[in-house]
């Protein structure tokens, strides 16, 4: 038996909206630690890793580990039937082929119950090695979203070069219209951590990435006020959105090679 009660349906809506365009179906792995998910996009260039720790739910019950194969697009549509502040309760029996979703209004005067069919998903689980990154940049998530949008839509760029030095982080593109760059400097004051740009750097690093993936990752912006970019030469970029202290959505993106 699995049961997880989330105070706000809104969080699950935001998570699904953040990942459903990149991966359309995935296995939700349920264990006593919480709910996790890992999935690659169809071209095997990027990977999503989700963790919702059990302490983010009240209650959370998992008698034995379960793998729930879910069509994320369908689940996102179903979640739209919940109001943002509805209490979400997910339940599944062991060996069940359905996941039950219950939405309860805060005043407890409306109860919606849905049964979602599960599917068998044959997915590869990838081992992600622990990495010491050359540079970790934390910035407001809205700023990251804005930069990705502007460099994509404004210049028509396909690839973005991200160069991190002590001075700051520079995003450059060359596109159909011309070329451009946006540089963010480290902010002096850290009074408001969510509004700061903080660079933790062991050595300068420059990498090239497909901009359209970064724009897709930015759909997770509503999940967190800040985002971190972790970069090392010759390894995938990690874009992480933390959900308070109860979990994260991480996106991994393979770099491009300069010819």
């Amino acid at each position: 038996m699995f049961e997880a009660r989330l105070a706000q349906s809104n969080l699950m809506k935001k998570i699904l909206d953040a990942i459903k365009d990149l991966i359309t179906e995935a296995n939700l792995e349920i264990s006593s630690g919480g709910i996790s998910l890992q999935g690659m996009d169809s071209s095997h260039v990027s990977l999503v890793a989700l963790l919702m720790r059990s302490d983010g739910f009240s209650p959370f019950r998992c008698d034995r580990n379960l793998t729930l194969g879910v069509n994320l697009q369908a689940m996102a549509k179903l979640m739209k039937c919940a109001s943002n502040d509805d209490i979400l309760t997910m339940t599944a029996e062991d060996n069940s082929d359905t996941l039950n979703l219950q939405f309860e209004s805060p005043a407890q005067d409306k109860l919606s119950e849905f049964e979602m069919k599960l599917m068998d998903i044959d997915s590869e689980h990838l081992g992600i090695p622990e990495t010491e990154y050359d540079a970790v940049i934390r910035m407001p998530s809205s700023e990251f979203q804005r930069i990705c949008r502007d460099l994509g839509a404004g210049i028509g760029g396909e690839s973005v070069t991200i160069a991190c030095t002590k001075e700051g982080v520079k995003f450059s593109v060359t596109g159909s219209v011309g070329s451009g760059s946006i540089t963010l400097k480290q902010t002096g004051s850290v009074d408001k951590p969510a509004e700061s740009v903080v660079i933790n750097m062991a050595q300068p690093v420059t990498l090239i990435f497909a901009l359209r993936y970064l724009n897709s990752f930015a759909k997770a912006t509503p999940l967190s006020e800040s985002v971190s970019l972790s970069m090392s030469r010759e390894v995938p970029l990690v874009v992480e959105y933390k959900m308070n202290d109860t979990g994260y959505v991480r996106f991994y993106l393979a770099p491009k090679l300069e010819d």
Binding site: H44, S159, V235, Y252, P255, K256, L257, D259
Partner: peptide, 14 residues
């Protein structure tokens, strides 16, 4: 032009 790397060349299936 730059060439897109595949994620599977970095992470192994477990």
């Amino acid at each position: 032009k730059s060439q897109q790397r595949n994620l599977l060349s970095f992470f192994k299936a477990v």
